[in-house]
């Protein structure tokens, strides 16, 4: 029983990170129906920005997170402007292939600029282990940090989307781009803002991943990116609560599979879940079915 609780706790912190990444996927998909394959690489750039902020400028963890958010947001906005915007009226195939291109560009650009080595992410805060129930359950300060940061980010996002003018405009754009335009909403700006917010969340996730695994490297975004996408689909892509639900669910599933079965089965298991959900309910756990108009 205590082991089960331990796995849940571990799953929650990993799931937090997935949720933060999944959010960017889901928001971008919500407004322009694009799977931004480069999202994992935006995360990687954020992690490296934080790394350099800490090691070169001596920033503390919170300043590093802010710097990472700024760097990733800028990157996200630039990617949208340069690569995706010219294709907004093209077929889905072209946009998806472009997204793959951007992802490959950032991966290999990262390998060129940052080198192929794994780098140790600086231990900016003490990773204290708090033990409960005679030491059978451990909570680390990193886990607390990861979980707290995620909850705070979640609340901020909820506030932006539900209460602010920008959030209202984002919802309008995701509902109907043309109608939103007629209502005087600057659709291009809203899409940029969406990319900026999604990328900022990815940056936070990148820093947390750096803390969680202690290392960063240029291809670090690939797998977590794919898995977070699975989380977004699992919860229902385009839905913000879906991204959180999917992220946590996936994180817990992963730690359960590793803990009770084998770490080697963890990754295939995630993708089997993906295929199953796509076959059984493509709109995701929280989503609703839609049909193409003729």
């Amino acid at each position: 029983m205590t082991e089960f609780i331990q796995q849940i706790l571990n799953g929650l912190s990993l799931g937090s990170i997935y949720a933060l990444i999944a959010l960017g996927y889901t928001m971008v998909y919500g407004v322009i129906q694009l799977i931004n394959f480069a999202h994992g690489e935006i995360l990687m750039v954020g992690a490296f920005a934080a790394f350099f902020a800490i090691t070169v400028w001596g920033a503390n963890i919170f300043a590093a997170i802010i710097i990472a958010m700024i760097a990733s947001s800028l990157l996200g906005v630039v990617i949208e402007r340069v690569a995706y915007r010219p294709l907004r009226n093209s077929g889905r195939l072209a946009v998806l292939i472009t997204a793959i291109g951007v992802s490959l560009l950032l991966q290999n650009g990262g390998l060129m600029v940052f080198g192929t080595d794994f780098r140790a992410f600086p231990r900016v805060i003490e990773n204290t282990h708090y033990k409960f129930f005679n030491g059978s359950i451990t909570i680390t300060s990193y886990q607390i940090l990861i979980f707290t940061v995620t909850v705070v980010m979640m609340l901020i996002l909820q506030y932006i989307v539900q209460k602010t003018k920008v959030g209202k405009a984002m919802r309008a754009v995701s509902w109907d781009k043309d109608a939103a335009k007629l209502m005087g909403i600057n659709v291009d700006n809203i899409i940029s803002v969406t990319f900026a917010i999604g990328s900022a969340f990815a940056a936070v996730a990148g820093v947390l991943l750096g803390l969680y695994y202690n290392t960063i490297y240029p291809l670090m975004g690939l797998m977590p990116g794919l898995k977070a996408f699975v989380a977004a689909v699992l919860g229902g892509i385009g839905l913000i609560p879906g991204a959180f639900a999917g992220g946590f669910l996936l994180g817990i599933t992963e730690t359960m599979v590793s803990g009770y079965w084998s770490t080697k089965w963890r990754d295939p298991f995630v993708f089997i879940i993906l295929i199953l959900i796509l076959i059984i309910k493509p709109s995701g756990l929280l989503g609703r079915e839609e049909k193409e108009k003729v």
């Binding site: 794919l226 295939p268 298991f269 295929i275 493509p282």
Partner: peptide, 20 residues
């Protein structure tokens, strides 16, 4: 499945094969 879902499903399939 629609285009982008197919892309992701087949991508997942490839990863399953590798993982197995």
């Amino acid at each position: 499945l629609r285009g982008d879902y197919l892309a992701i499903a087949t991508l997942g399939f490839g990863e399953i094969v590798r993982g197995i």
